[in-house]
C-alpha cells in the first residue's frame, strides 16, 4: 500500500497563505477554521550601534496541515476510535463516532484536528480524498503560486527531496513519524540558538 505525504519547501514558501484559503474554499470551512495553517517563524534581532541599526532578524514560513503520521498519537488517544487510518493511509475522523472532546488536538503535536463549530465534532485534512482518487493533487498543492508544496507517495518524495522530517518549531519526528518531507530554510538550522519563535500565534 502507498503512503501519501506532503513535501513542504520552506525555502520558497512566501507565507502568502494561498494554500490555506484554497483548502478552506474546497472544504467549505468557516473563517478561522484551518485544516492547513501557515506558521510564521521569526528570530534574530536588531543591533543598535549609537543610533545606527544593523539588521539580523530572519523569518521563514511553514505550511502545515495534517501529516498523516505513520504512528499517529491522535488515533492512539481518541477515546471513541473515531480517529482512524483509512484505506489510503490517511488519518480521518468518523463523524458517527466523534464526541467532540478535543483530546486529539491535545495529543497531536501539530495541532491538526480542529473543532468544527457547526457540527460540534472534530474535523481535519482528509488529503482531498475525492481529488486524489481522480489522480489530482490536493487543492492546497495545486493552489501554491510558489510551487512550494508537493504531494505523492512518500517514498517517491523521499527520493526526490531527501528525508528531512522536521524543522523548528515542529516536534521531533520520532514522536509520531509524520509523512512530510521538508526542505529546511537556512535560518531554521540556527533557529533555536537565535531566539526564534512563532510570530503569528493569533492566526493559527
Amino acid at each position: 500500500m502507498k503512503t501519501y505525504g506532503f513535501y513542504i519547501d520552506t525555502v520558497n514558501c512566501s507565507g502568502c497563505k494561498t494554500c490555506q484559503v484554497a483548502c478552506q474554499d474546497k472544504n467549505d470551512l468557516e473563517p478561522g477554521h484551518l485544516w492547513r495553517k501557515i506558521i510564521d517563524i521569526e528570530g534574530g534581532d536588531w543591533k543598535n550601534d549609537n543610533g545606527v541599526f544593523s539588521e539580523y532578524p530572519f523569518a521563514y514560513h511553514v505550511s502545515l496541515a495534517c501529516n498523516h503520521c505513520s504512528d499517529p498519537l491522535c488515533v492512539q488517544s481518541c477515546p471513541t476510535q473515531a480517529m482512524h487510518v483509512t484505506d489510503i493511509g490517511a488519518v480521518d475522523i468518523d463523524q458517527d463516532k466523534c464526541i467532540g472532546c478535543g483530546y486529539c488536538t491535545w495529543a497531536c503535536p501539530y495541532d491538526a484536528p480542529k473543532l468544527d463549530k457547526r457540527t460540534g465534532r472534530m474535523s481535519k485534512c482528509d488529503l482531498c480524498y475525492d481529488r486524489i482518487t481522480k489522480n489530482e493533487n490536493p487543492s492546497c498543492v495545486d493552489a501554491c503560486p510558489m510551487r512550494a508544496l508537493d504531494f505523492g507517495d512518500i517514498e517517491v518524495l523521499k527520493e526526490k527531496y531527501g528525508n528531512t522530517r522536521s524543522i523548528f518549531p515542529l516536534a521531533s519526528p520520532e514522536l509520531t513519524k509524520p509523512n512530510i518531507i521538508i526542505r529546511p530554510h537556512k535560518n531554521s538550522l540556527k533557529a533555536s540558538v537565535r531566539n526564534a519563535s512563532i510570530a503569528n500565534r493569533e492566526e493559527l
Binding site: 488515533v75 492512539q76 488517544s77 481518541c78 477515546p79 471513541t80 476510535q81 473515531a82 458517527d96 463516532k97 466523534c98 464526541i99 467532540g100 472532546c101 478535543g102 483530546y103 473543532l115 457540527t119 460540534g120 465534532r121
Partner: peptide, 24 residues
Amino acid sequence: HLNYPRHAFNALNNIISSWMSREI
C-alpha cells in the same frame, strides 16, 4: 466539555490504547 454529547457512550470504545477511555 463534549461538543457532541449525543455520542458520549462512544468514549469507552478505545480502552486498548486511549488513556482517556481508561480514565472514564
